[in-house]
């Protein structure tokens, strides 16, 4: 089986044309970026607004959970049928799927910023806008990006399944392979989806490292071992490992988010 998989992947014919691996990979990537991008455009401002003002938190959490509870494939199929068999319908389904984690990350990220820090931001004379951009967003960055990473992973996986209702992308290999009883093709499709997911996550974790202010990354180091409540909150949104260990602090300074 592995042998056949390797042969399938090594076949130059599978690397050319509209059904070739590069084309399918780019298609898949395109769906993910479009879906995650639109979801971010919608969910990030909403999450930041609710987190900042503290208004509508219950509503937001409820709506987020309701969205999460929707069976993804069912939703995508439903939209496909209702909106009328276009690719756009399927993409809307993926956007809906990506919204809850981003919303939750942005909302809880801003919410969990230390009350005293927010109080100080008000007290030194920041306007609401300055408080949001200079204090709340930088401190919420780990959770915001955690939410986005989570959303991207879900979209990568679901976009493969959504090939069932007319999308291209890597899911085609799986579906077409099953139809044609071509198991190496099925396996190759599955493998490529997994690889793409891992690759995107690695890239995003790199982005996270660059964008999370150095002061937060070094938090907990050299502070008499005081524990940071922030880290457990971060894991709630997604179980990623945070980069707080080791390393000289001074060497890392300068990767902060202070300049926008």
């Amino acid at each position: 089986m592995i042998q056949q998989l390797i042969e399938w992947l090594a076949d130059p014919a599978h690397w050319r044309g509209p059904d070739g691996i590069p084309t399918r990979l780019l298609e898949h990537l395109y769906y993910c970026l479009v879906a995650a991008g639109f979801a971010t455009l919608v969910a990030l401002p909403a999450g930041l607004f609710v987190g900042h003002t503290g208004r509508g938190g219950t509503l937001l959490v409820g709506a987020g959970n309701a969205l999460r509870a929707l069976p993804t494939l069912g939703l995508v199929t439903f939209l496909y049928l209702v909106v009328g068999g276009t690719q756009t319908a399927t993409l809307i389904g993926l956007v809906v799927l990506a919204v809850p984690p981003i919303l939750a990350g942005a909302y809880s990220g801003v919410q969990q910023v230390d009350r005293r820090v927010v109080d100080a931001a008000v007290g030194v004379g920041m306007t609401r806008w300055q408080r949001l951009w200079q204090v709340e967003v930088p401190n919420a960055m780990p959770l915001i990006l955690g939410g986005i990473r989570n959303a991207v992973l879900q979209v990568v996986a679901t976009a493969a399944v959504a090939a069932y209702v007319g999308l291209g992308g890597l899911g085609r290999y799986v579906l077409d392979g099953i139809r044609a009883v071509d198991y190496p093709k099925v396996l190759a499709g599955a493998l490529l989806v997994a690889l793409l997911a891992i690759l995107l996550d690695v890239v995003l974790s790199g982005v996270q490292w660059l964008v999370v202010p150095a002061g937060l990354r070094t938090a907990g180091v050299g502070d008499e071992g005081r524990r940071r409540p922030r880290r457990s909150a971060r894991r709630e949104v997604r179980g990623e490992t945070t980069d707080t260990g080791g390393g000289r602090v001074d060497g890392r300074a300068g990767h902060g988010l202070r300049k926008r």
Partner: peptide
């Protein structure tokens, strides 16, 4: 204006309320 008023009045709180993402100097 509240923000301008506060910039003209120093404010110190318990636990200092320092901004964790900024260096001490900033």
């Amino acid at each position: 204006d509240p923000a301008l008023l506060r910039r003209g009045i120093g404010y110190v709180i318990q636990h200092a309320g320092l901004f964790p993402h900024r260096t001490v100097l900033d």
